[in-house]
Design a protein around this nucleic acid. Structure first.
Length: 327
DNA sequence: CACTCTTA
DNA sequence: TAAGAGTGG
């Protein structure tokens, strides 16, 4: 399994933040938040970022701390959220993936804590509730900060890639290698890390291996994606070889006498995902800092000192880069 | 997901 | 050399 295998095929290069000034980046909100919830939250004491009625709001701190990175480098983020309703034809695959994710989360918790099934159930329900609040409050904060939000019909990642393909944005911002299979022309990774961002070039990747987009997706399926397990004994090298020798997924599977459940659907998910052309947004950002502060520290009871510096940086960077003229 | 170690 | 398993973040 493993999507990271795609990394070994991807055309990657290091870029400077300075080179990104003035650009627009479509950020997969779910992906971006996940990063904070697995780092920031995980290393702090339990309940530190929880409201009196038990709602986890660590994401608010994450957003406040993460946004300055964009603004200080004159990058406009556009946050793309997953759609709630999935199309009929993708239901089957989505369900399978969700099932797997649930299973994996459960397994991870169990392994980590060594707890019994009752404890696992508690953790699971908490995780479920967490998700709703996180998305709700992230939207709430971004709205007050006037940061563009796009609601994707289905997968946020796919919508972000589509917007990049349409030229609506300059880059997709994601840690996920799926962006490459989705045909995102340029994907930026490590936007939130200390060092320089990493650029993933779609066309260069195809050219480097002399592949079509379809073939790249087929290689992904052979190695395994979020939606399917790969073929046993097939990694990046073998997958490329198989597709090159046999033309496409079907030829490769035939040669290996292998089968991938739902392969047609998964293929379509990457090549023709459910996206919209009507994703409009305004990059002229006029944040209501007071409203944002009130929302975070009063409405959601986040200790003011946790977000003070972040809000300061947002204010300063917006004034400096001229993104904001105050409204 | 990255890094490292083990195995074929 | 390639793939898979394991672990830490």
């Amino acid at each position: 399994m493993g999507n990271a295998d795609i990394r070994s095929l991807a055309a990657l290069s290091e870029v400077e933040f300075g080179d990104l000034a003035g650009s627009i980046v479509a950020v997969d909100a779910h992906n971006w938040l996940y990063r904070y919830l697995t780092t920031t939250v995980k290393f702090t004491r339990d309940g530190a970022y929880t409201t009196s009625d038990g709602r986890e709001v660590a994401n608010l701190i994450g957003v406040v701390q993460g946004l300055p990175k964009f603004f200080e480098h004159d990058i406009t983020p556009v946050f793309v959220f997953d759609g709630g309703v999935t199309e009929l034809k993708t239901d089957e695959v989505d369900e399978r993936r969700e099932q797997r994710e649930r299973y994996e989360a459960e397994l991870a918790e169990a392994k980590e804590s060594g707890e019994d099934s009752a404890r696992i159930a508690t953790l699971e329900s908490r995780t479920q509730r967490l998700t709703d609040t996180i998305h709700e409050t992230t939207r709430g904060l971004l709205e007050r900060l006037d940061v563009p939000i796009i609601e994707a019909p289905a997968e946020g990642e796919a919508q972000a890639a589509h917007m990049a393909r349409q030229g609506q944005v300059d880059y997709v911002g994601s840690e996920d290698y799926d962006a490459l299979l989705l045909g995102a022309p340029y994907t930026l990774r490590q936007l939130t890390s200390k060092g320089n961002p990493e650029l993933m070039d779609f066309e260069a990747t195809l050219a480097e291996h002399d592949l079509t987009w379809e073939q790249l997706v087929d290689i992904g399926l052979l190695m395994g994606t979020d939606f399917n397990d790969g073929i046993d004994g097939v990694g990046p090298k073998t997958a490329v070889k198989l597709v090159r020798e046999h033309g496409d997924l079907w030829g490769a599977l035939d040669a290996r006498d292998a089968y991938i459940d739902g392969a047609e659907l998964i293929r379509e998910l990457f090549l023709h995902p459910d996206v919209t052309d009507d994703a409009a947004f305004d990059t002229d950002i006029h944040p209501d800092m007071d409203a944002a502060r009130t929302y975070v520290t009063e409405e959601w009871e986040v200790p003011a000192d946790e977000v003070a510096r972040g809000f300061e940086r947002i204010e300063e960077s917006l004034v400096q880069t001229g993104l904001d003229q105050w409204g």
